[in-house]
Design a protein around this nucleic acid. Structure first.
Length: 451
RNA sequence: GUCCCCAUCGUCUAGCCUGGUCCAGGACACCGCCCUUUCACGGCGGCGACGGGGGUUCAAAUCCCCCUGGGGACGCCA
């Protein structure tokens, strides 16, 4: 039975490297039909914050990684917070003391004893790594002078107690693993298998950190910046692992079905925002329509109320028509603005084109009055406040005939008249979704600007 | 500084273990064309890499060594 754990310490927010570690553990556990355990490594009471603890839970849940055992969930090996496992840690310390695996130094702290001059870590992704113990630094402290256990002791003792079979963590732990292996052995416990994941590097080539201002690092930041959890998971999955058939768009299910620890690479990977963005756009387009509508709606900001007033069906229909143009959930706001705002002025790019592009200005001058006139001749059906699909098609055709313009010459200024912008969602959809009185208002102001 | 790890297009990578099918395949980004009565989506195409040097071999991206480059670890933090 495979048992893996993700053991973050709540001394900072859940960052993307941690999320990737969690993800690989999670996917591996699911693939193997094993258990995914969440354990809080909070032995550093000074720096552990409840706020971060919550952030870790929220982040994991947002990404869809449910843990089988852990805080809030319980399990056979409770408790799952190291701060509550002092007793077990001290018992392990006693065991190490009596077996000679550890000793108390002249300063009164318990240290691991390096028994050999060499330790070999057999790693699933990196192969055999040989360490000379003298190069590992001083023998690690297990119990501080105040008697509390350190990370090394606590981590290993808990891994033993919780019967962890595979330790999957970042490559920055490789030298720790050498020390930990010694502790497992001194404890007379079976040594789990190890897999050290290659590090994620920032755009500057150094280990990704919060300080790296060029890109986001914490999971909550990605959430609030308009990324879909599916996109972030997909992206993270591809950092250091590849699908056997090179499939690039992967759901959690896809990843679970085809995951193999043996396929994990061992070269550090640079975080590529472009790819994340691409994946985000792909997932916005391809998830369930209702889910996309809900997600986009979260980002509609000030237009949310008006949108709600127009009914759920309206927004779902809009998203169905227009989500192809969204690459980030934040695009929801611009979308909502185009559909319901009563103050859509002209974008700078339009006014600039009007001033500096004689051809565009000429086309705009021609189409603007024609467009306004066309709209004024339209009768809405019954109690509708928007054009029907047919009418939307009809008004563009009428404007086309009356102006004698076609193609880009027609649509570029027409788009400006309808949306106040030179680019954006599909025009036909905009015409059929925007309230008719608003369309007329915009047409009027476009006449004012263009003629 | 010491130790460990790594090295294929700008980026993520396939291939490397089990040398030949690789004058190196895919994806993102970028550029062009097509589709579309506009943009986007989509389709097609282009640009673009085995860090260098030695070996081993009939044959090396693939195996070995050196160099260089990058990263990580060296806490009574985790």
């Amino acid at each position: 039975m495979v048992r893996v754990r993700f053991a973050p310490s709540p001394t900072g927010s859940l960052h993307i490297g941690g999320a990737r570690t969690a993800l690989f553990n999670y996917v591996f556990a699911r693939k193997m039909g094993g258990s995914f355990i969440l354990r809080l490594d909070d032995t550093d009471r000074e720096r552990s914050l409840e706020e971060h603890e919550r952030g870790i839970y929220d982040g994991l849940r947002w990404l869809g990684m449910d843990w089988d055992e852990g805080p809030g969930k319980g399990g056979t090996f409770e408790p799952y917070c190291q701060s509550e496992r002092m007793e077990q840690h001290l018992a392990a310390a006693e065991k190490l003391k009596s077996s000679g695996g550890a000793y108390t130094d002249e300063e009164g702290v318990l240290r691991l004893r390096y028994p050999e001059t060499e330790v070999i870590v057999d790693d699933i992704v990196n192969g055999e790594c040989v360490f000379k113990t003298e190069a590992l630094g001083p023998e690690p402290v297990l119990l501080r002078s105040n008697g509390t256990p350190t990370y090394h002791l606590a981590s290993v003792a808990d891994d033993v107690d919780m019967k962890i079979t595979h330790i999957i963590r970042g490559a920055d732990h490789l030298t720790n693993t050498a020390k930990h292996k010694l502790i497992f052995e001194a404890l007379g416990a079976p040594v789990p298998k190890f897999a050290h994941l290659p590090l994620i590097l920032g755009p500057d080539g150094a280990k990704l950190s919060k300080r790296n201002s060029d890109c986001l690092t914490s999971v909550s930041e990605f959430q609030s910046s308009g990324y879909l959890p599916q996109a972030l998971n997909n992206f993270l999955m591809l950092l250091g692992w590849s699908h056997p058939e090179s499939k690039e768009q992967l759901s959690m299910q896809d990843a679970i079905e085809s995951f193999e620890l043996e396929r994990v690479g061992n070269t550090a990977a640079v975080f590529d925002t472009n790819k994340l963005n691409f994946l985000n756009a792909w997932w916005i387009r391809n998830i369930d329509l209702r889910e996309a509508a809900d997600a986009l709606k979260e980002f509609t900001g000030e237009y949310r109320e008006v949108l709600d007033a127009r009914g759920e069906e309206f927004w779902i229909h809009a998203v169905e028509k227009l989500r192809d143009g969204c690459s980030n959930l934040r695009d929801g706001e611009a979308l909502a603005r185009l559909l319901v705002s009563e103050n859509v002025g002209l974008n700078a790019d339009v006014t600039e084109a009007l001033a500096n592009d004689p051809e565009f200005a000429e086309h705009a001058r021609q189409i603007a009055p024609v467009w306004l006139e066309t709209l004024e001749d339209v009768e809405l059906d019954g109690d509708r406040d928007t054009l029907t699909v047919e009418q939307a098609k009809q008004v563009t055709n009428t404007a086309k005939k009356a102006s004698g313009l076609k193609g880009k010459a027609l649509f570029k200024p027409l788009r400006a008249a309808v949306s106040g912008s030179l680019s954006g969602p599909e025009l036909s959809a905009l015409l059929e979704l925007t309230r008719f009185d608003e369309l007329r208002r915009r047409a009027k102001s476009f006449v004012d600007a263009a003629v």
